[in-house]
Design a protein around this nucleic acid. Structure first.
Length: 253
DNA sequence: AAGCACACCAACCGCGCAACA
DNA sequence: CTGTTGCGCGGTTGGTGTGCT
């Protein structure tokens, strides 16, 4: 059977999401749940296809999304399960709470594949290193047939670069239309404890305001919901605060 | 300073599958 | 059984930032 592409309707928007669209989608999903993705954009007043909305929500807007650099443990988990499962990114993502299949896929293609190649590289008889045949493919080489440059400072320098940029920009739409309101100095630096489930006493005391949010996202506790939302706010995205309030996530201020 | 190549990642595309009428 | 619909997955693309020459 032949199915028309889901985004073929004239008037449906494609490309990067704007902050306003993010806001509308988030508010709608928080209030009503996603239910039927196909019908959601129409009901929410978005000029997007349901597929696009679903992708945006799953890969970016979900409050339990974990951003920032991958820990060594996470990298090892990805490698381990990729060995077992192959390119089953969703299955691998299921082992890494807060990480999306898309993110894992990107990390694999941009970092871990190279890392494995490097590991599997063996010196030839002249003492030169060549990639093992089993892991060598065309994208190791540029058009002129030379090896792509490896990170210079350390094997994982690109992870640091990646996380820094991720924290600074988040997405094209947010960066362009929302994040510009915040100077880089105004955005607090975020350390590893940012994503920890360990809660401060502050979080615990405030968390009673977040049962609805915790329930909505099947987070373990209201404390966790509060922690995640606080993270967003700390990240300079104050407009999320309004979104959650409007969605009924806060009982009172 | 400008141009180019590369790295990164958000988003799109097409397909397969399951549920349902 | 067949066709339709919706969802989820994996592969791919395109835009943007960064670093090098």
């Amino acid at each position: 059977m032949v199915r028309a592409p889901c985004c073929d309707k004239v008037g449906l928007k494609k490309g990067p999401w704007t902050a306003q669209e993010d806001q509308i989608l988030t508010a709608y999903v928080l209030q009503h749940g996603h239910g039927n993705w196909r019908a959601l954009p129409k009901q929410a007043g978005l000029l997007r296809c349901g597929k696009s909305c679903r992708l945006r929500w799953i890969n970016y807007l979900r409050p339990d999304i974990k951003r920032g650099n991958f820990s060594r443990e996470e990298e090892d988990t990805i490698i381990e399960f990729h060995e077992k499962l192959g390119n089953k990114w969703s299955a691998i993502a299921a082992r890494l709470p807060g990480r999306t299949d898309n993110e894992i896929k990107n990390v694999w293609h941009t970092h871990l594949k190279k890392r494995l190649k490097k590991k599997s590289a063996t010196p030839d008889s002249k003492g030169h290193f060549t990639a093992a045949a089993s892991t060598c493919d065309s994208d190791s080489f540029n058009s002129s047939g030379k090896m792509s440059p490896e990170p210079s400072s350390s094997e994982f320098s690109s992870f640091t670069d990646s996380s820094t940029r991720t924290m600074e920009t988040h997405s094209t739409g947010v960066k362009n239309e929302q994040m510009e309101e915040y100077s880089p100095e105004s955005i607090p630096e975020i350390d590893e404890s940012f994503w920890s489930d360990e809660l401060s006493s502050d979080n615990s005391s405030m968390a009673s305001d977040f049962p609805a949010v915790a329930d909505e996202f099947q987070l373990q506790t209201p404390e966790l919901a509060y922690g995640q939302i606080s993270n967003m706010m700390d990240d300079g995205m104050e407009f999320w605060y309004d979104v959650f309030i409007r969605a009924g996530g806060l009982q009172e201020l």
